[in-house]
Computed example of a mutant assay.
Amino acid sequence: MPAIAQSQHRSPHHEAYQGLWIPLVTPFNKQEAVDHGALQRLVARLRGAGVRGFVACGSTGEAALLEPQEQDAVLDTVYAAAGALPVMVGVSGPRPGPVAARMQELAKRFPVHAFLLPPPSYIRPSQQGLLNFFLQIADQAPAPLALYDVPSRTGVKIELQTLLQLAEHPRIQALKDCGGQLQATQTLINDGRLAVLAGDDHAIFPTLALGGAGAIAASAHLLTPAFVQLVAALAEERTETARRLWLVLTRLIGLCFAETNPAPVKALLARLDGLHNELRAPLHPASPELEQRLWEAYRQAEAQLAV
């Protein structure tokens, strides 16, 4: 089978987004206040495992349930613990002006690598509305934008032609791809202007095998070194190594999304890293049945990786 032709004009931004990024959970204590000590220890542990960088205040971090001052405090802790590793910051909202203003405020306090920006939730704008929304924000953004196509959360998909138009803007550099359309993913990778990151954990293998830049993977809070090795093997076209790792991790990845993220991941982190198994309402901890299945899958994968 002939190799898939890729763009000879891949953006230089591609390297800025390569590798494994962790969309951080936000630990809470029993009173549902942010547990900054647990967050600091988590970031330090992940940093030592060889990840490329972090995403803070994203959907995995329950950012929609944090007040702005709580988000700022989370970012203070993450940046202090991340050291030299880059941090992307999630920002969202229904209107371009306030979203851009929030970005400008954050960029004055933090060295933002990129802002992770989804479509406005609930509103379901047309594709022209999405185009206007993203371009208005990009024109005012103080740091690069990584768009977040996640129709399961926002109710609207950023269609391929819209993404190709948005790729023309110099501030729009990357895409967290949760669109679920592998052919569109391949087209964007081949186009070369956006750094495409797998946003659905189950799509890490095909996205990177097609030439994607990296992955933003919530399940990689767990067995992190194996995920780092997987992403590196795919980038280096060491297919057999990548396939072996993928087969070991697949069951755990699936269970991490059997109930609403980040409940399953937090359940295991409570066992492994000493975080409280707390989510902010209306989110709810994983069911005891799923927690047991997760623990069994984790121990099985851990044993296979040790062989």
Rank of each mutant, 00 (worst) to 15 (best):
P96S: 15
L106D: 02
R95P: 00
V150Y: 12
M88P: 03
A100F: 10
P120W: 08
A80R: 13
L166N: 02
A174F: 11
L116E: 04
Q127P: 05
R153H: 06
E105R: 13
Q104S: 14
E159C: 07
A143E: 04
A138E: 04
A146H: 00
F110P: 12
S121H: 15
P118N: 01
P86T: 09
F134W: 00
H113Q: 11
E105I: 00
H113F: 07
P142H: 01
L160P: 04
E159F: 12
I123Y: 14
K157W: 02
S92L: 12
P94Q: 11
V112Q: 08
G129V: 05
Q127A: 10
Q128D: 15
I137Q: 03
G129F: 09
T154L: 08
I158G: 04
P94E: 12
P94S: 14
P151R: 00
P120V: 08
Y122C: 07
V156F: 14
L163Q: 13
L85F: 11
V91C: 07
G97M: 12
R153P: 06
Q104F: 05
Q140H: 05
A80P: 13
P142G: 00
R171Q: 12
H113C: 07
V89W: 08
L163D: 07
A167F: 08
Q128S: 15
I158P: 01
P94K: 10
G90V: 06
L163P: 09
T162Y: 07
P125K: 13
L85H: 09
L135Y: 13
A84T: 15
I158D: 04
V150K: 07
D139A: 08
L135G: 09
Q136E: 15
P118K: 04
V99C: 08
S152G: 14
H169C: 13
A114T: 08
L147M: 13
T154Q: 05
V91F: 02
A107R: 06
L164E: 10
P120H: 10
F110N: 09
Y122M: 09
G93D: 09
P111T: 03
R102E: 06
G129H: 08
Q104W: 10
A80G: 13
G129P: 01
V89H: 01
P151Y: 03
L85A: 08
L85I: 02
